[in-house]
Design a protein around this nucleic acid. Structure first.
Lengths: 94, 94
DNA sequence: ATATAATACATCGTATAACAAAGTATTATA
DNA sequence: TATAATACTTTGTTATACGATGTATTATAT
């Protein structure tokens, strides 16, 4: 089992790395929140919860790194698709 | 001038990276707090304040990553020298 | 002589961000 | 008919960097 120290270290690492991975991931294609959670897991091996990703996306919106548009589905809940802005693209080159 | 966004991003990055850099730096030689601040600046280009480094060192002590011993100076304030523990060495291999 | 800077430690309050928990709503599966 | 999966959201807690402030000693500048 993972020590409290390592578990906490990982959490703190995410505070810096998550915005980068999200911008990186969205620079390949538009994605919605729930999809991003699975993408971050499969592509980067990062576990993220919904209460992390949704506030983060809202924050990146406020910073003008992202834009979004609701897309109605033929069935089920509509999805909020996010795409990276010109501003956002500038920031992932670091 | 650096944007608020980038300034904040850097702060969040440090929350994950600082423990690593401190352990890394202490694995080469024993160092005291004030010395570490200058070392992190010159070797890694990282700006750290005293109100960051001292609590961090205390935390790493509690986690058994470090040990320390006071060293009296021929003149001036005594220095608290930190050295990395066996436990700490294990953790920087990641 | 006297103020300022540099050295060296420490603590308090604030802001940021991940995360557990809980909630709403729809559709698929057991 | 309940449970899981999909999809979004909010509230409260916790960890940590950092500005500000404080104490104390020594060196440098005015």
């Amino acid at each position: 089992m993972k020590s409290e120290f390592l578990k906490n270290w990982e959490t703190q690492m995410k505070k810096g790395l998550l915005p980068f991975f999200v911008l990186q991931s969205l620079s390949t294609k538009e994605q919605y929140g729930y999809e991003l959670i699975q993408e971050l897991k499969s592509s980067f091996g990062i576990d993220v919860t919904e209460s992390t990703i949704y506030p983060l996306l809202i924050r990146l919106m406020k910073e003008n790194m992202l834009s979004h548009n609701w897309v109605e589905q033929p069935s089920g809940i509509p999805r909020k698709y996010y795409s990276i802005s010109t501003e956002g693209k500038k920031h992932i080159k670091k």
